[in-house]
C-alpha cells in the first residue's frame, strides 16, 4: 500500500518537473522548492547519527577523552557565522579545516603533474604516442601566454586547437549521451514502475 502511494507520489513529482518544458509554472516551482527542503531535511538526521554521535559525542562523553572538548568548542564557533558582529569568530574552525590544503600542494603536484609528465616521456615508437606527444605539447604552448602566437610557433600552437576541438567533441558526444540517459531512466520509471508497461 505505502509502496503504491509512494510510486504515485513519485510519478506526480516527476510530471511536475517535466511541466517546466511547457513553461515555468506553479507545479514546477512547488516541486523545485520541495526538493530543496527535502534534501536539506534529509541531511540533518544523517549527519547527527553518522557523524556527530560516533565522532564527537561518543569519544567525549562516553569514552571521556576530555581533550576533545577543545575541537568541540572550535566546532561550535561555526555558529557565529550568522552574527554580524562576531562572524569573524567562525573563521577559526574554517581555518582549522583549511589546514589540509597544505597537503594538497605536494599531492596535487605529484598526482596531477609529475605522474602525467612521466607518461608523456614514453619513447616515441608508435604513431599514436607521437600524436599524443605533439598534441599535449602544442596545447601546453597554446596556453603559454608569455609569447605571441606568430610565425612557425603560432602554426604549432594552432595544432593544439585542433586537438582540443576533437577532445571537446568527444566530451560533447558523451554529454549528450549523459543527458539522454537521465531521461531514459525517468521514462523507464514512468512506464515501468508506475504504468507497468515494461517488464
Amino acid at each position: 500500500m505505502t509502496e503504491t502511494i509512494g510510486i504515485w507520489i513519485a510519478a506526480f513529482l516527476t510530471l511536475c518537473m517535466f511541466s517546466f518544458l511547457y513553461k515555468d509554472n506553479p507545479f514546477y516551482k512547488f516541486a523545485e522548492h520541495l526538493f530543496v527542503g527535502v534534501s536539506m531535511g534529509y541531511y540533518i538526521p544523517y549527519t547527527y547519527y553518522n557523524a556527530f554521535i560516533p565522532y564527537a559525542y561518543e569519544p567525549l562523553f562516553l569514552k571521556k577523552e576530555y581533550i576533545l572538548i577543545i575541537p568541540f568548542i572550535i566546532g561550535f564557533l561555526y555558529w557565529f557565522r550568522f552574527s554580524s558582529k562576531y562572524s569573524w569568530v567562525s573563521r577559526y574552525p574554517i581555518a582549522f579545516s583549511m589546514g589540509m590544503v597544505g597537503m594538497g600542494v605536494p599531492m596535487n603536484m605529484h598526482a596531477n603533474v609529475l605522474v602525467q609528465m612521466r607518461t608523456m616521456m614514453l619513447p616515441l615508437n608508435s604513431i599514436n604516442i607521437i600524436l599524443i606527444f605533439v598534441g599535449t605539447i602544442s596545447i601546453l604552448l597554446y596556453f603559454f601566454f608569455s609569447k605571441a602566437h606568430k610565425g612557425v610557433y603560432g602554426k604549432f600552437t594552432s595544432i593544439g586547437v585542433w586537438f582540443m576541438m576533437v577532445g571537446f567533441g568527444a566530451s560533447f558526444g558523451y554529454t549528450v549521451m549523459a543527458r539522454i540517459s537521465l531521461l531514459i531512466g525517468r521514462i523507464q520509471f514512468l512506464l515501468g514502475d508506475w504504468l507497468g508497461l515494461i517488464k
Binding site: 568527444a170 554529454t175 549521451m177
Partner: peptide, 11 residues
C-alpha cells in the same frame, strides 16, 4: 562515471 565526465579520465 556519468558520461559527462567519461572522456576526461583517459589521461
Amino acid at each position: 562515471l556519468t558520461a559527462v565526465m567519461a572522456a576526461d579520465v583517459y589521461p
